[in-house]
Design a protein around this nucleic acid. Structure first.
Length: 514
RNA sequence: GCGGGUGUAGCUCAGUGGUAGAGCGUCACGUUGCCAACGUGACUGUCGUCGGUUCGAAUCCGAUCACCCGCUCCA
């Protein structure tokens, strides 16, 4: 039997409904009405996330001699954020120019406007420059003598439509001033004083840079080598949206891979390829994955390359991971701000340098969401026992066509499925079957997450497991009592094979391997 | 942030001023020899929250919160 590819997009309503119903994802503190941008993972969701993180850790850290792990604290010294540029650039109200994409501090911008308050054009300019008298003449067709200077903050936002930005000749391109500090602020110690202000980290990366010296001194690593970290990060997003995609509290998996300066391009390419291969293994097909290569203006000023790994979500193609070549921007900043030397002495070349870094930075929650979107199918299967082709349901159709019935299934890659195996006695009122099933369950449960179920008809139990993505179902029947064989039912094909209990562990190990 | 929409049982939803409902699900018992069977019974609600109008509000009004859609935004 051939399966059609998942060539349609699940509706996010249907997905979030299933996630709630089956215990993957809940709204945080739901009984109090929830909070925008925060989500909880239920019993199945937490297993899914653990599998994603463990798979990443294994692939990036444990199977590599030259990558080590770190678990840094969420609250760090505030000067970390000064060094990284997270404080300073973003604590003041900013205005953006929609046309030139420039960003200005609103309190450093002045406005040249007509003294009479007439509805003529107004001209914004930086406070350290002279008023733009020429623009008044050329674009505004007015006399500069009739104009006066006022702070930008005094201009009502509703008049921005006749405000010309500093680097443009067109009116109405400036956004209203907005505070851009997206870091959560808190206080260390019981006194809420400004001296005690601290921040929840907006990324895990800076913990790695701040401990670069200690790891270098203790881990006996030589260039190139990496430091990896998985942990929570917090951003006070203006507008969380798309289910769990943009949350205010989220989990990152970040690697800082330190390299000799000049080898940036090759290592960047290497990690893009490594990471794409990992996405394939956890179940995101090539056809749904894209690289977004940042160039020119889209590149941060310190980066020499950045490739985003994108996935086709139902709500659009969105970033799962960014892989940036950040040069030595961060180590330079921390060295400067802390006054502590962070240079590396290369015994081979007898050179001392600040290593460059390649940073693959992935969002665990986004990957979990992508895996759920990808895995979710409603299939129409022929009624009756045998034959007929399974088709992927039209997502807009409300009912299966005549002769078919709907089946909801999460086709997770087995390595990330919350439960690997479900074990069923064929009938619950036959003590011999139940006893044997418990015996098989206990044995398998030592190695894998297993689910035992004896409630209801066997077909119903299979379907329940389909809906939570359990790849294998094992049924103990009367033949088992005779010859110690069981049926193993495949989630995707719904086909069954008969197998001795003694072979089960090898078979499962092979099927669920990463 | 702006505009529109929606909030009733775990899920999907009906209920337009007069005693809170259905299907599915969940659980128990019985039945059941492999793909959402059946029977009986049980569970679940401050009708998102707060306030107002009214003799009386799930229903009308206001505010607020959350979610969805479209813009916007996303170092």
């Amino acid at each position: 039997m051939t399966m059609k590819p998942n060539d349609y997009h699940v509706s996010m309503d249907a997905l979030s409904s299933l996630c709630k119903r089956r215990g993957f994802i809940f709204q945080t503190s739901e009984i109090y009405g929830g909070i925008n941008g925060f989500w909880d993972y239920g019993p199945l969701g937490v297993e899914l996330k653990r599998n994603i993180k463990e798979s990443w850790w294994k692939s990036v850290v444990q199977t590599r001699e030259n990558v080590v792990g770190l678990d840094s604290s969420i609250i760090m010294h505030p000067r970390v954020w000064e060094a990284s540029g997270h404080i300073g650039n973003f604590k003041d109200p900013m205005v953006d120019c929609r046309e030139t994409k420039s960003r200005y501090r609103a309190d450093q911008i002045l406005v040249f406007k007509h003294k009479s308050n007439a509805a003529t054009l107004m001209f914004a300019y930086p406070e350290d420059e002279a008023p733009p008298a020429k623009k008044v003449k050329k674009i505004g067709k007015q006399r500069a003598d009739d104009y006066e200077t006022v702070p930008l903050m005094d201009i009502p936002v509703e008049n921005y439509d006749r405000l010309v930005g500093p680097d443009t000749n067109e009116a109405g391109t400036l956004t209203e001033p907005r505070a851009f500090n997206l870091m959560f602020k808190t206080f260390v110690g019981p006194l809420e004083e400004s001296a005690n202000v601290a921040y929840l980290r907006p990324e895990t990366a800076q913990g790695i840079f701040a401990q670069f010296g200690n790891v270098l001194a203790t881990a006996r690593q030589k260039m190139p080598f990496g430091i990896a970290q998985i942990g929570k990060a917090f951003r006070n997003e203006i507008n969380p949206r798309n289910y769990t995609f943009r949350s205010r509290e989220f989990e990152q998996m970040e690697l800082e891979f330190f390299i000799q300066p000049g080898t940036d391009a090759e290592w960047h390419e290497y990690w893009v390829a490594e990471r794409l291969s990992w996405y394939g293994k956890v179940g995101l097909p090539e056809g749904r994955m894209h690289r977004d290569i940042h160039e020119g203006d889209a590149l941060a000023h310190y980066a020499s390359a950045c490739t985003d790994i994108m996935y086709d979500f139902p709500f659009g193609t969105q970033e799962l991971e960014g892989i940036a070549a950040r040069g030595n921007f961060d180590l330079t900043q921390h060295q400067k701000t802390s006054g502590k030397g962070l240079e590396y002495f290369d015994e081979e070349t007898k050179e001392k340098y600040l290593p460059h870094v390649i940073e693959p930075s992935a969002g665990v929650d986004r990957i979990a969401l992508a895996l759920l979107c990808e895995a979710y199918r409603v299939e129409w299967i022929p009624k009756g026992k045998e034959g007929g082709e399974v088709v992927t349901a039209d997502p807009d159709a409300r009912q299966a066509p005549e002769g078919y019935e709907a089946r909801t299934v999460l086709r997770f890659a087995p390595c990330i499925a919350p439960y690997k195996v479900a074990v069923f006695p064929l009938l619950k009122n036959k003590p011999e079957l139940v006893a044997k099933a418990r015996e098989v369950f206990d044995r398998l449960n030592e190695r894998w997450t297993c689910f035992y179920d004896q409630a209801g008809a066997i077909g119903r139990r299979y379907r329940r497991q389909d809906e939570i993505g359990t790849p294998l179902g094992i049924t103990i029947d009367f033949d088992t009592l005779e010859d110690d064989t069981v049926t193993v039912r495949d989630r995707d094909t719904m086909e069954q094979i008969r197998m001795p209990i003694s072979e089960l562990e090898n078979y499962i190990a092979e099927r669920v391997r990463f």
